[in-house]
């Protein structure tokens, strides 16, 4: 697969279709590739595409689409929703991107392997549905299914929402998976006190590193309100109080209706805070009140929260629901 992608990238660079390539570069361990920019055919020798390329490259296109010439970018199915959403919000120029849609069997999560006992990891190899870990304290073999990222368990399906061409491993028919809202339902049935305690406990681990915000394709403000350094608005300290939770509440509200559920926030959180549950609660409510809607599925429809119709629910729905 990787060879095919490298070959196409070289061709597109060579014939002048694109002037740079946004992809992933091999790591120094077998499980830590990094998003990277390639500007020459030679540099593509370090290009990699494997199960550890979970990072969604669409947000980098904000920066890259401002540069001269087109950028080739590789997008997995879920990444294409983010890309579309950024186009819709006029943050990315569609014309500046050449998109190759790559197939995905579910991104691997090294932390999940560690939780399942892989320790002192020396090498990880994938072979179809089997993932083998060679490790100092005992080798392990996993079913891929057991060591994929949380978001891949709620995969929106194999179809790419936008692309210029598809790689041969793309599987547009791969069905979506359900279970996206089952965890949300578990939280909904809690009584308010219990629910408050649940979130308080989860958020008490937050170190306010801002990784969730900075990785989020929906968080594309040039200056975030939380980076405001004025007296009374500065928000740099982490404090285990409402102050702290405000960051998460405001962020969740601000991405409501625009969050594609790409799962990057939960992937990057060093404290494994289940941020996807906040976002999915909003998505679920939007679906209930305004009809099914998937942010990023297209670039031209009107989003429910920015479109007024006389059938819209009244704010009092909140009280009615309890």
């Amino acid at each position: 697969m990787q060879e095919e992608l490298i070959r196409r990238a070289k061709e597109l660079l060579g014939d002048g279709t694109v002037v740079r390539v946004m992809g992933w570069r091999k790591g120094d361990l077998s499980f830590n590739p990094e998003p990277a920019l390639f500007e020459t055919e030679e540099s593509l020798a370090e290009f990699v595409y494997d199960g550890f390329c979970g990072a969604n490259l669409s947000k980098y296109m904000i920066k890259l689409s401002k540069l001269e010439g087109k950028t080739l970018v590789f997008l997995k199915p879920c990444d294409t929703y983010s890309f579309n959403q950024l186009v819709k919000e006029h943050r990315v120029d569609r014309e500046k991107a050449y998109i190759i849609g790559v197939g995905c069997d579910g991104s691997l999560d090294v932390d999940a392997m560690k939780e399942k006992g892989a320790k002192g990891i020396q090498e990880i190899t994938e072979d179809g549905d089997t993932v083998t870990v060679r490790a100092i304290y005992g080798d392990k073999t996993f079913d891929r299914e057991d060591v994929i990222l949380e978001r891949c368990r709620a995969c929106k399906g194999g179809a790419h929402m936008v692309y210029d061409e598809l790689a041969s491993n793309a599987d547009e028919e791969k069905p979506a998976r359900d279970g996206r809202f089952s965890l949300v339902e578990k939280i909904e049935v809690m009584d308010p006190k219990e629910r408050f305690a649940f979130w308080q406990n989860e958020l008490s681990r937050c170190i306010r590193c801002n990784a969730c915000r900075n990785v989020c394709p929906a968080c594309s403000c040039i200056k975030c309100v939380f980076d405001n350094d004025r007296y009374d608005t500065a928000q740099k300290a982490n404090a285990d109080t409402f102050e702290e939770q405000m960051f998460h509440i405001i962020r969740a509200f601000h991405v409501a209706g625009r969050c594609t559920d790409c799962g990057e926030c939960s992937r990057v959180c060093p404290e494994h805070i289940p941020l996807h549950l906040l976002n999915r609660k909003f998505i679920k409510d939007i679906n209930t009140f305004y009809g099914d809607y998937q942010a990023g599925a297209d670039t031209d429809s009107r989003a429910p929260l920015t479109n007024f119709t006389t059938e819209d629910v009244e704010p009092s729905i909140v009280q009615e629901r309890g």
């Binding site: 990094e34 998003p35 990277a36 920019l37 990072a55 980098y60 170190i207 306010r208 590193c209 801002n210 990784a211 915000r213 900075n214 990785v215 990057v268 060093p270």
Partner: peptide, 10 residues
């Protein structure tokens, strides 16, 4: 190039 400017490492 890929750095998110987050505070995770720090």
């Amino acid at each position: 190039d890929a750095c998110l400017a987050c505070g995770t490492c720090t």
